[in-house]
Amino acid sequence: MNDSKISSNIFPLEDSLKFSGRVTASISHDLKNVLAIINENAGLLQDLSLMMQEGLFLSPQKLNVIANKIENQVSRANDIISRLNQFAHSVDEDIREFDVVQVIECMIKIFDRIGRAKGLNIELIKQIELIKIKTNLFYFQFIIWDCLDFIAKSINKENILILSVNFTDNIFYINFILKSGSFEEESFNAFFNNEKIILEKIMGDFIFNIREKSFILAIKNSHN
């Protein structure tokens, strides 16, 4: 792994914009679903109000159920917007210290709908609860997204992806393992070549595990 300072290689602006576009598109889709549920519940209240005017008896419990549903969706929307806000602020500083597990969880949630559309369910295993590293947050998110996207495109039937995270000797590791099946080395190598500039940006590297046909993303903590 390159031990020097964070790379000054220029990363194509177009790729960064595409990545930001994909993330915000996914978030806006999730928000639309939330709004659709709130809209239907508001509509149902209007329907019930009209029916009550015509003599229908309505139990307070029914109104409570609807209010709870709206409340749940507002809370869900708040979580989604918090993720959008976190993503938007990821470009504030070039290098910063952050909680990697929390950022990975956030990217998994944003990617979830896209992954599930391809049959990919993602599980995160934390060997250590809190792992803080110092690197470029935007590119860190970018590479996590690209890994998930590569895997979702690699599978051809329903599968579970296990992400196992660990931190030793000032290096942070994420192991990407499919529960059934494996990655082809050839397609992994093509993916790896496309990611070289981002890897340099975050002082990271990929290690392909030939025996288990899984791969590891390793990132050096630039804190020291």
Partner: peptide
């Protein structure tokens, strides 16, 4: 796949 959406829209159409 949004259960809450499906349930409430079902009720409104049935109404």
């Amino acid at each position: 796949d949004e259960q809450d959406f499906v349930e409430v829209l079902q009720e409104r159409l049935e109404n």
